[in-house]
Design a protein around this nucleic acid. Structure first.
Lengths: 145, 145
DNA sequence: GTTAAAACCTCTAGTAACTAGAGGTTCAAG
DNA sequence: CTTGAACCTCTAGTTACTAGAGGTTTTAAC
């Protein structure tokens, strides 16, 4: 009956919508200690505040950028202990950028080869599919992968 | 003592080296029915022939190109039943190319944003790390991700 | 005030594609 | 004949969730 006004609490469903993170994922993050295990209602339901919303948005953004949960964990702890944190955070991000660039280069090569494989239109009546032939025969490839 | 000469059989380790696929992975592929459960020596060790080597190379190549094991399974069965197979194989490959292109585009956007985050050199003595700030604040992002 | 649906709870198991490890057997070389 | 590498099976762990079972609470309608 008595509703607190100062910080309206969010149910897990409301948090989910606000951060665009699915409900089971939020519970999973709690279990993994990425967000705090918050207080509960009389009926044992989680009650979140603005703080957890911010944290969850942080996590979501980092995940969308491809950081691993482990990276996220480290970044969060750096965020919470403000001294000397930035060098570490920077190196995590830089390392991640590096790995994104590697994947990018690799994917580009794959694109080229797949393109080549797909575009060999099976025009005539060859006895075997060119796609399958191309997969069987690595020597056709122009680059490593 | 009596070695068959016609098709010298390969141990799993030799097969592994020849196809550049790790030994436990080969066993895993057998369990997943991607390669045949071959005959064994008296001492219960697997004996492979050229046929399995070709098959394993096929799988390896397809995996390197990013096809899922499920795709590989389908491609293999198409390879083994030669009629009307090519359209299917082609569509699997085309679909895969499509998805590679999506990932490529997405990764490029990530690269841009990460680059931006990383290059905001924390020159001055700001009270919070720019990397962490950038992650907390999605509104800085130039594109969706 | 009741009732029904939606949202919540916990827990377990499943996904993909391996990888690691335990605990034991067989093979090849010296 | 012995030692060490390579082999065997089986189970469990990895990542980041997702799905489902089986049950409780909240909310909205009547």
């Amino acid at each position: 009956m008595t509703r607190k006004k100062n910080t309206a609490s969010l149910s897990i469903g409301q948090l989910s919508k606000a951060a665009n993170v699915k409900v089971p994922t939020i519970r999973y993050y709690e279990q993994q200690q990425l967000i705090a295990a918050v207080g509960r209602s009389e009926g044992n339901q989680r009650q979140y505040s603005e703080q957890e919303l911010q944290q969850l948005k942080f996590i979501k953004h980092a995940r969308d950028l491809g950081f691993s949960l482990n990276d996220v964990r480290t970044l969060i702890s750096l965020d919470h202990q403000p001294n000397a944190s930035c060098e570490n955070a920077h190196s995590i991000a830089a390392k991640h950028l590096e790995s994104v660039r590697c994947r990018l280069a690799r994917l580009k090569r794959l694109e080229d080869e797949l393109e080549r494989i797909v575009s060999q239109s099976d025009s005539g009546l060859n006895d075997q599919c060119s796609v399958i032939k191309a997969l069987a025969d690595h020597s056709q490839c122009e680059s490593e992968h």
